[in-house]
Amino acid sequence: MTVRKNQASLTAEEKRRFVAAVLELKRSGRYDDFVTTHNAFIVGDTDDGERTGHRSPSFLPWHRRFLLEFERALQSVDASVALPYWDWSTDRSPRSSLWAPDFLGGTGRSRDGQVMDGPFAASAGKWPVNVRVDNRTYLRRSLGTSVRELPTRAEVDSVLAMATYDMAPWNSASDGFRNHLEGWRGVNLHNRVHVWVGGQMATGVSPNDPVFWLHHAYIDKLWAEWQRRHPGSAYVPGGGTPNVVDLNETMKPWNDMTPAALLDHTPHYTFDV
């Protein structure tokens, strides 16, 4: 059974195996297909049109499925690997072990944002940025530059306290848990973390940075925490909503699974705490 652990508690061996599996997906070309799919949805999802992966109620189940696909790909390389999560409300410094050279590497240099250490640095030769929106082929970051602070635990708790999953108009203007977690409204959790990391993480091709998966694994965990706090609150809308994935509608691009089928993560993985 897959157990998703806090990245801060991984052993050196677990980090090594995770990095090796990610690099193998990159080498084989499978990694970049995930980047391409994410960008296709992020530019296609609009507030007044069809919306599936972002700015909509299905933001959470869509990314849960997307991460499951990625985790299964990792496990096809190394069956012992699970996706770790990054609790950025606790590990909120560029000096966190997350950014050490034995794991994801650190921030970019000031001149061009290029990451200079760790297994994903361009200089290591194994991480070409192929799916991109400009001509720069190296991984970039600028930790804590565009926005100074990551969300605090108190800010996380204020969003987890929201009892309603989502609300009309089911987009970036909505009140409720989903949109506050996504960050288009209120204290801003998910979006702000993308901006804090900077580089490709701040763009539509954000999965070019492996921290994408650790960030979304924690967003996914917060959804599970929210469900535990609000057992009477359900995914909405329940049906008949144009352009929006209702509870029992299948989601693109897989077309074989509904939000209803993804509400319970425990058939697929559990968390360490």
Binding site: N39, V147, H190, G204
Partner: peptide, 14 residues
């Protein structure tokens, strides 16, 4: 965005 703000593909979360 619905509130009249704007994003681009190189700054998609801000």
């Amino acid at each position: 965005n619905a509130d009249g703000t704007w994003i681009s593909v190189v700054s998609h979360y801000d």
